[in-house]
Amino acid sequence: MHRCQPIAGLRSSGKGANRTILDCMFPLFGGDKAVVLPPRGPRAPAASSGCAFGVSGAVPLAADEKGLGIVTTASSADHPTRRDFLFVATGAVAAVGAAATVWPLVSQMNPDASTIAAGAPIEVDLAPIAEGQDIKVFWRGKPIYISHRTKKQIDEARSVPVASLPDPATDQSRVKEGHDQWLVVIGICTHLGCIPIAHEGNYDGFFCPCHGSQYDSSGRIRQGPAPANLPVPPYTFVSDSKIQIG
């Protein structure tokens, strides 16, 4: 018997329900009064989890009435596979339709075309930023810190043994070669998304006021609950004093 085990996840009405109902129909025909059908391949209870309404044990009201019941008679034994194929095909097509319907309903939640267009690369002029200063610009709604690091900050960042860091990365790998004084990081704490404050904390870098994470002058995590370094956004130097972020 291929009994459809009911599960707790009841489906609501709508397209998804079609498949469920169809799936549930099959076992009816394998029910108590029906001719036992040849197996339709492995159909363990787990595999039939799409069924919302179990019918096991419940003999339909009209089932006992000869000729008017739902039970198929010997004729079905002659072509059992053809009928099975029809039910499986209908269920499969309905399932494909339900899945295809879900796609646009989910896809609409992705950023729309105007948001994507607004997320185009931006150019930032570095000339006004004096040594030791930093600025915050927004790209795709995220704050980007651009720090003009002092010699001291660079030296501090490079003198730390990389292996001792929670998220090991060299300072060189986090800046562009030849532009070592410029640190460009996304100013979002990798713990839970707060904005760290620049020039605070014990490492001459960033301090997150929410939960006390501290980043060094290379934007690497040094202390606190944050698991990773401040990420470096994609950027390139258009000229010595201009970068393009994105």
Binding site: Q5, P6, G54, V55, S56, A58, P60
Partner: peptide, 25 residues
């Protein structure tokens, strides 16, 4: 229901029975 977990739920909230009697039987 035959599944023990569903039996447990059904004794406390007979929602499967409701669905069954409304939309199946």
């Amino acid at each position: 229901p035959t599944n023990p977990a569903l039996k447990w739920i059904e004794r406390r909230l007979p929602i499967l029975g409701l669905m069954h009697s409304s939309f199946v039987a």
